[in-house]
Simulated assay, not measured.
Amino acid sequence: MSMQRRIPRAGGTRVKRALGVQAALEWAFRVEKAQLELPPPQDVSEEGFGFGLEYVLMQRAALGCKADGGQHKMGSYTHADAEVIAAIVAGMPDSLGGIRMAIRVAELARAGLTPDWMPGAMPRCVPVETRRNQHGERAVTEVVGTERVLHRGRWRSVDVLVCRVTWRPHPEQIKSARRGYHNWWQALDWLQDGLATSGMLREVEVTAPMPKVRPWGN
């Protein structure tokens, strides 16, 4: 994905570049190399609901004092809108994961990735342990007791064998991956609303398209 540094004007009016929230995040962190500058922790006596727009406004004011428009790049330009996006990500509310989620959102955007929700994963019952010999791969069994059986008119003692099994991938592993995706999606939903309504982006317009809320379809 690429974006011009300067967005042309049409009839004297600035034309904004429309981007979905995920594309806007990837532009800010991957293309513009914006850095996630996290604010200091709140006073422990305060209720933690993120850092709000006050911090973002402070970041914007700081940006206005920079000759090259960027706080973090040495000798190169970081678009001011990218810095604002990074500042709003840093204000992720605690109810959505706070600083931890802000870091995750930024890292995924910088890598151009979507959280792995384990597409196509289906739990299968498989042996806990297998061994391979000249006859192929076989499940490992163990003796758990003996039984007496009547065979051809004679009583014999035979071993009772069991094969220990497990689920792979485990259903809880799949649930955890999809819960992580859903938490990321909720964070992007909050960011989409904040970026679209903040009025702080000068050359970028964050539009409504979002990643699928449940790509696994059930």
Rank of each mutant, 00 (worst) to 15 (best):
I99T: 07
G145V: 02
P171I: 00
A121C: 05
E172I: 06
T13G: 01
P211R: 02
M101L: 12
A82G: 10
V140H: 12
T207I: 10
L25N: 10
P209W: 11
I7Y: 07
W27E: 00
A121H: 03
L191E: 02
W167E: 01
P215Y: 10
C163E: 01
Y77N: 02
Q4I: 05
H151E: 01
I99V: 13
H182K: 12
L19G: 07
L113R: 13
P169Q: 11
E37Y: 13
A87P: 02
Q186T: 12
D116E: 02
S2G: 10
P169N: 08
H72F: 15
E37W: 14
L191C: 03
I103M: 15
D116M: 01
W216H: 11
K16F: 05
E203D: 15
G12R: 10
E172N: 08
T114Y: 11
E129V: 13
K66V: 10
R154L: 06
H182R: 11
G91D: 00
R6Q: 02
R14L: 12
R5H: 08
G120F: 05
D68F: 15
A196T: 06
L195I: 05
L38F: 13
I99F: 12
M92A: 04
P40Q: 10
A87I: 03
E137N: 09
V165A: 01
D81I: 08
R6H: 05
R30H: 14
G136M: 03
V44A: 15
T13F: 14
W167Y: 11
G145R: 03
E47K: 14
A18T: 07
E46Q: 15
P41M: 06
R164H: 10
Y77Q: 02
A24I: 06
M58Q: 09
S198M: 05
V162R: 15
